[in-house]
């Protein structure tokens, strides 16, 4: 049972807003606030005295089709309103939120920005983003390990997005599962930090293969860690030779200008 509203939903993602503990929407296919109750399937007693006929039916169905179709719907909506969407992916602690805190004030001068935050629990990240004065919504996935297209579809309905804006989606910190789920974004941005291993792209190749852009964060710490930037970049390029590459520090701001320019170019070109 859901602790907040007392409904019978015992799992599934929940949308939250920072600073408003009453706001609470379950993600469901039938629209917000409408809890989806799974019907109880009575187990039918099989009559073993009758002959059973079995037959095989061809399906040829992509297992991720449902998510992919919904992601395309999201994508169409974003395209129609000229909203540029970036999906940020990394392990926990690579600095996704810090990077957003750094870049958003710089971009905001010319472009409206909104953020969707994904975490298993808490609205901590959404609170940090809200302090920047941009619209933000938190998705708490509960036991879920990734965001999916349905969660984004629901979250977008709760966010007042402006035409010609930038939407940043911060996925759940996880380098495995989110790689498989298209959300309808324009590009995927994978972030690694120099406090991780430089072989990360080889250890988690699916994520690096799916990404369009890789950001190496925390380069201000390079003097203190055994991290080989050249080797890491080489590893990333082995997995995905189309990957674009940036090195920066969200803390000191070093290298952020080049990435800002990249985003502004993308915003102009769309």
């Amino acid at each position: 049972m859901c602790d907040t509203c007392g409904c019978s939903a015992d799992s599934g993602a929940v949308l939250r807003k920072p600073g408003n503990s009453d706001y609470h929407v379950h993600v469901s296919e039938s629209g917000h606030g409408d809890h989806h109750h799974e019907g109880h399937h009575d187990h039918e007693h099989r009559d073993h005295h009758h002959e059973k006929k079995s037959r095989t039916i061809a399906l040829e169905l992509d297992v991720l089709q449902k998510n992919n179709l919904l992601a395309e719907r999201n994508r169409g909506y974003f395209e129609a309103r000229n909203i540029f969407v970036l999906n940020f992916l990394s392990s926990p602690g690579s600095g996704k939120t810090s990077l957003l805190e750094k870049i958003i004030p710089l971009l905001q001068q010319h472009t409206a920005v909104a953020v969707i935050e994904g975490d298993q629990q808490t609205t901590n990240d959404a609170e940090r983003i809200q302090a920047l004065g941009v619209p933000v919504i938190q998705i708490n996935t509960g036991s879920g390990c990734h965001l999916d297209a349905l969660m984004i579809n629901s979250a977008v309905k709760e966010l007042e997005l402006q035409d010609n804006s930038l939407l940043c989606i911060e996925n759940v910190g996880n380098l495995v599962c989110p790689a498989l789920f298209d959300l309808g974004e324009a590009l995927k941005v994978v972030i690694i930090s120099v406090t991780e291993g430089d072989d990360k792209p080889l250890k988690y190749p699916t994520m690096f293969h799916e990404a369009d852009l890789c950001i190496l964060n925390k380069i201000d710490l390079l003097p203190y860690v055994a991290f080989d930037v050249r080797k890491c970049r080489e590893n990333a390029m082995r997995v995905n030779h189309h990957l674009e590459w940036f090195e920066l520090s969200a803390k000191t701001g070093e290298g952020v200008g080049a990435w800002q320019e990249w985003i502004e170019n993308k915003l102009k070109l769309r």
């Binding site: 079995s54 095989t56 399906l59 082995r238």
Partner: peptide
């Protein structure tokens, strides 16, 4: 060369199901 494109091995499909029905 490392410029490799994956052409197969990423498929994830429900090919068919076998159902039982009452004669």
């Amino acid at each position: 060369s490392l410029r490799i494109t994956i052409v197969s091995g990423e498929e994830f499909v429900i090919q068919s199901i076998t159902i039982e029905e009452q004669e």
